[in-house]
Design a protein around this nucleic acid. Structure first.
Lengths: 337, 337
DNA sequence: CTGAAAGCGCTTACAG
DNA sequence: CTGAAAGCGCTTACAG
């Protein structure tokens, strides 16, 4: 019985020995340059690579070239499905450019976010994409000034940083206006904890004022299903809630739906709802949510391209991507997607 | 105006120079060994590290030590929230041991899974955790035999591989038995595409036979919300569907609920449901799903510990973790979690 | 207690 | 067209 000795990875030297060439030539073949290699020699090397199953050691390449071909991605959490959907698109966009993604979760805490930033930069990632749940990400202690960074999913411009985000004001305005057009006489707001007059709140308010309507009631809560549930109970529990409501995230809307159900209220018959995000879960709620959809794939691709400097005409630049109203039946439209 | 020169990361040599010691001593201080350092010298070095913001270059460390302090995690996708929930727990468990996670998605395709395995091993990850959606993961072309690997979320033992998974047969048996105990006269199965007589299917069938009941109808479909929706329409569309149903995943159950709603059937009054997985989304469906919950955190921690060899009394070993029935109201229990 | 030196696997300018 | 050599930043046995 052959007991395998502790296995050692195949290195370039093994390939060179097998093919009867120098190690340099192996590299030239692997990268198709920078020096030319005779066709016959190259064929021998390629055969050796195939037979031995050689793959260049990524750590050595990173050390030598200063580029790890990895991108760091910091998300606040993975419990809210919006983030994994965004992460998946970032991974796809990165893979298309030959990059892997080192994923880190900040658990929504600034201290952890700082720590992740430090870790990622120690790992020599070629760029970091930060999707912060916080109003303004705390970037004060970023140590490595050389590492490209973009902020993804910010709703506002952040001075000195490249950022990408949806036009939240317009999205909230569109969603609220849709409820107004349905003719509902009152339109409340369920709003996650964010900065004062966050853009979704502004959009909701402007839409009401543009239509000459009075402000509706506001319930503030966490950006979670549970938060939306509690806000829903508060807003509609006394029987004096508004006829419709704009909700600042799908997850919260899911919670509002549960609250309505428990209270014996029906959507959209008793309370119509439009929410912000457009995640897959919103497609299968009862009733199906009408949403202001963030174009996740577009945003992810823009973030990857920008952090890689492919599109670096301006060092700091904001990409504002347009949201899109996607009709379900929770608004009263009775559309089936 | 000071134009910053292209920034260079702080290296050990910078620290040594600043502190007036050799580079070796810097390493000794950073690792608290393997050579002793005079207290005063160590203090000087630590001060230099702080001032300069030094972090060891992870690529260099990986090259030198052969350990990257990274774990690879391959998931089939991130659209089904079960996977990000599992990924999050893996990231937490890994972080607790000082490891970062390189996440890769196979999109449910064997070819991509092979490719990801190659990529991860080229990156010198210290171990790979594979969560395959496939009945048996195709590991035929794993090149690097030296890299520890564990299979997470397999329902059966895989010869020659460490694997971790829930006792699916027992879980399905428990879930189905619960429906039997409710007294429903017929119990169908909505089953994802898997191997012949997959364990969830076996568990359902055995529970019925153990109770002396006839088999119920089976609808097979994809492991998605859409799949469950279509299966639900097929099973209940003609008005002759069973009184209750066991569903092989939460996502499919979400789809079944939508189908029932469209057909004008109510859960649990017309059709009672129990599903398998226990993801966060299932907590907020209407009605709240009764689920057979996979202990995701336990599984993730076991996978990380095993792949790191912390618990390596047996090279190939199967951890079978127990599922738990968590009552909601979709089974007819009227419990609120 | 401290430091000079080898070597991890690679890329690439340089010499032949 | 091919190869010997330097050096990326680190860890650690070895010498002092």
């Amino acid at each position: 019985m052959t007991v395998p000795t502790t296995p050692r990875a195949v290195t370039r030297a093994d390939v060179a020995r097998y093919a009867g060439v120098s190690t340099s030539v192996v590299s030239y073949v692997v990268h198709d340059g920078p020096r030319p290699v005779a066709a016959e020699t190259a064929a021998r090397v390629r055969e050796a690579i195939r037979v031995l199953g050689y793959r260049p050691n990524a750590s050595a390449q990173a050390l030598r070239t200063g580029s790890s071909k990895m991108l760091g991605l910091i998300v606040p959490e993975l419990d809210n499905p919006f983030w994994p959907e965004l992460a998946q698109e970032v991974m796809h966009a990165a893979a298309a450019r030959g990059y892997d993604v080192l994923l880190a979760s900040s658990d929504g805490e600034a201290a952890q976010e700082r720590d992740r930033l430090r870790t990622l930069s120690a790992r020599q990632v070629d760029g970091i994409i930060v999707t912060s749940i916080m109003t303004r990400p705390d970037l004060s202690t970023v140590t490595d000034p050389g590492i490209p960074m973009v902020l993804l999913n910010t709703f506002f411009e952040v001075p000195q940083y490249a950022s990408i985000g949806v036009d939240a004001l317009r999205g909230a305005h569109d969603g609220t206006t849709h409820l107004i057009e349905h003719g509902y006489d009152s339109i409340g707001l369920v709003m996650g904890h964010a900065g004062p007059m966050e853009l979704r709140e502004q959009g909701w308010m402007r839409a009401l004022r543009d239509a000459g309507r009075p402000d509706g009631p506001i319930a503030r809560c966490a950006f979670t299903r549970q938060g939306g549930y509690e806000a829903g109970l508060r807003m509609f529990g006394d029987g004096a809630g508004p006829r419709s409501v704009f909700v600042s995230s799908d997850m919260q809307a899911v919670g509002v739906l549960r609250a309505l159900h428990e209270l014996g209220l029906r959507a959209p018959d008793d309370v119509a709802i439009v929410s912000f995000d457009g995640s897959a879960e919103a497609d299968y709620t009862t009733p199906q949510l009408t949403v202001v959809r963030q174009p996740v794939e577009t945003m992810a691709r823009a973030a990857v391209d920008r952090v890689l400097g492919i599109d670096a005409e301006h060092p700091w630049h904001r990409d504002l991507v347009p949201p899109r109203l996607v009709l379900g039946s929770s608004c009263g439209c009775d559309v089936r997607r």
